[in-house]
């Protein structure tokens, strides 16, 4: 564990808490992408199968369970609970059909694992989750774009999620310098970089809006 990784994890936790607060305070999921939440749940469930095979630490196991549980709860709220359910407008969230994200990532993961000779289902699903995570935020970014004016807490949610990914890049740099038996994984680096790059545009407008104290409005 290093400071960047821990700060990244905490930023991720804060983003989830902000999202829950955002849903509860506005009593609506308008501006929130259910698709992004569902993609994240697929990511967590496929990546954290090692909960059953490998024990790293109590911290690690607790966080994994917390991510799965909180994301499941958020999806349940939007899909089945009032008033979120009836206010949810699926047509705002039409970008990127889940299968068009899942299928290419599954194909790529299978290919990558064949090349690396990692043929266990757990390895293949882990690699799949690395690729899918890079795409998971895309529907949320499109929902933001659709409404243009971003509600305060929704903006914070995306900001903390992006900060988490940015901090993980610093964590990899740190680990490669200071951990003796650290092994690079370029697939993780590349999809982590792609994922972080997706947030850059949002970050720019977020920081500018905070600096000038105005509303966060995205350009057309």
């Amino acid at each position: 564990m290093n400071i960047f990784r821990f700060a990244g994890d905490m930023s991720h936790v804060v983003s989830i808490l902000v999202l829950l607060l955002r849903l509860r305070s506005s009593k609506s999921a308008v501006g929130i992408s259910l698709k992004t939440q569902e993609l994240f749940l697929i990511v967590f469930v496929t990546r954290y199968l090692d909960l059953f095979t490998t024990f790293y630490s109590l911290y690690n196991s607790f966080m994994k369970v917390a991510y799965i549980a909180s994301t499941t709860y958020i999806i349940w709220m939007i899909r089945f609970q009032e008033p979120y359910k009836s206010k949810y407008d699926a047509s705002q969230d039409s970008f990127l059909h889940i299968k068009f994200a899942v299928a290419p990532c599954a194909g790529l993961a299978l290919f990558a694992c064949l090349v690396k000779g990692e043929l266990s289902p757990i390895d293949i699903l882990w690699t799949f989750s690395i690729f899918l995570e890079a795409l998971a935020i895309v529907p949320q970014l499109f929902v933001l774009q659709r409404y243009r004016e971003v509600e305060n807490l929704t903006g914070h949610y995306v900001f903390f999620l992006g900060a988490y990914r940015g901090l993980y890049i610093l964590n990899w740099v740190y680990r490669s310098y200071y951990e003796q038996f650290y092994r690079h994984n370029w697939l993780v680096y590349v999809s982590g970089a792609v994922q972080t790059a997706l947030y850059v545009d949002f970050f720019y407008y977020y920081v500018v809006s905070k600096y000038y104290g105005g509303k966060l409005t995205l350009p057309t």
């Binding site: 095979t53 790293y56 690396k116 882990w126 650290y182 994984n185 993780v188």
Partner: peptide, 10 residues
């Protein structure tokens, strides 16, 4: 299966 260090991350 723990071929890379990233596997212990969240």
């Amino acid at each position: 299966s723990s071929s890379s260090a990233a596997k212990d991350e969240l």
